[in-house]
């Protein structure tokens, strides 16, 4: 089992803090602000999900150590990217059909968020935007084309969220992080239903410790979803060797058709 795990400490060791901060700034994603009073860690129990023939989704629990006084926000997301969707509209005032395409930029294919309290209540607007926490922040972060104005964008972004939630790959909730204390250590725990609709890929789990409307610490872990065995071989072949894959599919279908025909001839006695 492969474990990808990282945690940042702002207290232990100034050099490492500076190094980490420099790296983070270089990557342009997070800037560590403030001083935390405890070490925050994150661990996903199921960091390597394998897709075989009998895969029907999984669960991912995220746990770790945290400062008991800080609020927590836990986010699992896929890398940001582009998604093209078809847009339905009324034609001739009566008929619903596809009336064009919508391009969504900077949106992850999967976005799960949970928090100890509603993120909008515990974080300042700029912090929500900086870390892209919650649907409104994601909406401000994303681009939607073509739209006529902000209102139109909001409308089609809402439709995007509804579509993603229906496909079970977007969800936002709060209040379902369990916190406990054991041997003086304060821990947290939450579990996500991992939908079989989530495609193979590398997903990032980010845990934010929040205090005074600010993110004071972050810890990261990863969930790798991978196809294995025959599932992987078939998927690779369909993508990489289309001609061979197509030929095998056709021959198998012809064989099955003839085979069943022969079976019926023997057993049927229809005339």
């Amino acid at each position: 089992m492969k474990i990808v795990r990282s945690s940042h400490s702002a207290v232990h060791g100034r050099t490492s803090t500076w190094l980490t901060a420099a790296l983070v700034m270089l990557l342009g994603s997070f800037i560590l602000k403030g001083v935390a009073s405890a070490e925050l860690t994150a661990r996903a129990n199921h960091d390597h999900i394998t897709i075989d023939f009998f895969y029907h989704g999984s669960t991912v629990s995220v746990s770790g150590v945290s400062d008991p006084d800080a609020d927590l926000v836990i986010k699992i997301s896929a890398p940001e990217g582009h998604q093209a969707l078809r847009k339905k509209g009324k034609v001739a005032g009566l008929l619903w059909m596809n009336v064009g395409n919508l391009d969504y930029e900077h949106v992850p294919s999967l976005y799960f968020l949970t928090a100890t309290k509603k993120p909008e209540d515990i974080l300042a607007l700029e912090e929500l935007d900086r870390a892209v926490i919650g649907y409104p922040a994601l909406a401000r972060h994303a681009e939607v084309k073509p739209v006529s104005d902000e209102q139109d964008k909001a409308r089609w972004f809402d439709e995007f969220i509804r579509y993603k939630e229906a496909s079970r790959v977007y969800s936002v909730s709060s209040g379902n992080i369990t916190r406990s204390e054991k041997d003086g250590k304060h821990t947290y725990y939450t579990v996500f239903d991992w939908p079989y609709q989530a495609s193979p890929g590398d997903y990032t789990v980010t845990v934010y410790a929040v205090r005074d409307k600010k993110i004071v610490e972050t810890a990261e872990s990863h969930v790798l979803v991978e196809q294995v065995g025959i599932v992987k071989r078939l998927a690779d072949m369909a993508r990489g060797r289309g001609a061979l894959y197509g030929t095998i599919s056709i021959l198998a279908a012809l064989g099955a058709g003839f085979g069943v025909g022969l079976v019926f001839r023997k057993g049927g006695g229809s005339h």
């Binding site: 969707l85 339905k88 619903w96 059909m97 395409n101 089609w156 439709e159 509804r162 229906a166």
Partner: peptide, 15 residues
């Protein structure tokens, strides 16, 4: 019917 009833989702997977 499908053409005239309001769909539950207004966006669908791109082609």
């Amino acid at each position: 019917f499908e053409l005239t009833m309001s769909p539950s989702l207004l966006v669908s997977q791109g082609g």
